[in-house]
Amino acid sequence: MTLRQLEAFRALMISRTVTKAAEFLCISQPATTRLISDLEASVGFPLFERRQGRLFPTHEAEELFKEVERSLLGVKEIAYAASQIQKAQKGQFHIAAAPCLASNALPFLLHHFMQTHTDLSVKLTSHASTTIMDMVQNAKCDMGMVILSSEYPSPLGEHLFSLDSKIAIPRNHPLAHKSEIHVTDLQGQTMIMGSHDMDTRQAFGLLLVSHGIKVFSNIDTNTSQTMCAFVESGQCLAIVDAITVLTYPGNNIVFRNFSPRLMVHFSALYRADKPTLGVMRDFVHYVKTSVTLAIAQNGKLL
Rank of each mutant, 00 (worst) to 15 (best):
M13A: 06
A11Q: 03
E62C: 10
L106G: 00
G53H: 01
N104V: 15
F93Q: 12
T276F: 10
T32K: 03
T276K: 14
S149C: 10
L124V: 14
V215H: 01
D142W: 04
M191P: 00
E67I: 10
H111Q: 12
L47T: 00
Q92G: 06
V75A: 06
S42K: 09
L237K: 00
V43C: 04
F283K: 09
H173K: 02
L301S: 03
L124C: 13
P30R: 07
I147R: 09
L208K: 02
A268Y: 06
L186C: 10
V264A: 07
T17C: 07
R281N: 12
E60I: 05
P99N: 06
T130F: 10
Q5I: 01
V136P: 07
I295H: 08
K20C: 05
C141Q: 05
R54Q: 10
Q189R: 04
F258A: 03
H182C: 13
H112S: 15
F266D: 11
M280S: 14
A81K: 15
G212F: 09
S37N: 14
L64G: 02
N252M: 08
E180T: 14
A31S: 15
E7K: 14
R34V: 03
P99W: 04
E23S: 10
T289W: 01
F56M: 06
S103D: 11
L6Q: 08
A272K: 15
K76M: 06
T223G: 07
G44I: 01
I95H: 07
T184R: 07
N251E: 13
L110D: 01
A296S: 15
P46S: 06
A81S: 13
Q137G: 04
